[in-house]
Amino acid sequence: MTAKIFSKKEWTQALEELKQAYRVFAPVKDGDFHTFMPLENGKQPDFDYPNSRLSPKSLVYPESERMFEFSLDESDSDAYILKEAPKDFSPQAVVGIRPCDSHAFQIVKRNFDNPEYQDPYWVQHFESTTLVGLGCNTPCSTCFCTEVGGDPFSEHGLDALMIDLGESYLVKALTDKGEAFLNSASGGNSADDAGLQKAEELAASAREQIKVSVPTDKLQDKVATDLFEAPFWEEVAFACLNCGTCTYLCPTCWCFDIQDEISGKRGDRIRNWDSCMFPLFTLHGSGHNPRDQKHQRVRQRFMHKLKYYVDKYQDGVQCSGCGRCVRYCPVNIDIREVCRKMNEF
């Protein structure tokens, strides 16, 4: 596979040209935070960033997505019959995604693309996407990717990986999609040994910087009903506001709602991100609600990520260690502490 080194200026120029073939998304400074945005209308990428506040999951799984459209006009022969909404599945490239967020796509893929059912929207958005990662030279204090099967320089799920060498980027193709992307980028020189050597050193140094310990080794052998009945859930949930920030920011939270919206004599069926933090999420028509208490909803979130998912897929937790929920929870609920409690219970 191709590996090239681009000066930073060359790389920005190359991305500009790649917009001919791809819808190119990259982190753009947006107020105090970075957000993945399409590089259009003069938007400039800024790869000197810790991570985006919102995860890039919305590029494959939009917060709100039209599924179907319909007419409510009785004079139309197809009134009340749902039709597929037109979609743009042309190639898109997400450039500068952190390895934890790429790992997260692989975690949620098991849900959206399973042997029985394929979610056509997620699958087609994902297939049209080329993921160009950016190794983390300086992980944040809230990062714990190495504890949940990841790595600050992990290539897992990526089509290409960028490494910031200071004045330049080393860009390595990892898949055919990544190779095609890199071959479409003009400029750059074949990577030399010095560049590759420096990348190795940066990776080793990044790994060293993640000191936190979040053991997950005993979760699989626990009995789910025992953990469910554990005495600590009310305490864990005590300060929770059920605001849903954690699920909104989480790259591995996938729950959605389906709603119809109408405007005059036409309408759309839309799916929207939803959250297990909200009581309406499970409210029955009868008024019965299996999770009407706050601690039940908080327990559901952690049990799903750290036990039910583990049991269902037998391949690790439903968390990529990005640390967003830790960083942005308004009452400092910390999944790393909850995970320790569950693992030690």
Binding site: N111, F112, N114, E116, Y117, D119, A224, T225, F228, W254, C255, F256, D257, I258, R271, D274, C276, F281, T282, L283, H284, G285, P290, Q300, M303, H304, K307, Y308, Y309, D311, K312
Partner: peptide, 16 residues
């Protein structure tokens, strides 16, 4: 309470 009906939207779980 259900939405997707095919085990994807995440709301009707009991355990796993």
């Amino acid at each position: 309470r259900m939405k997707c009906g095919i085990g994807i939207c995440g709301r009707c779980n009991i355990g796993d």
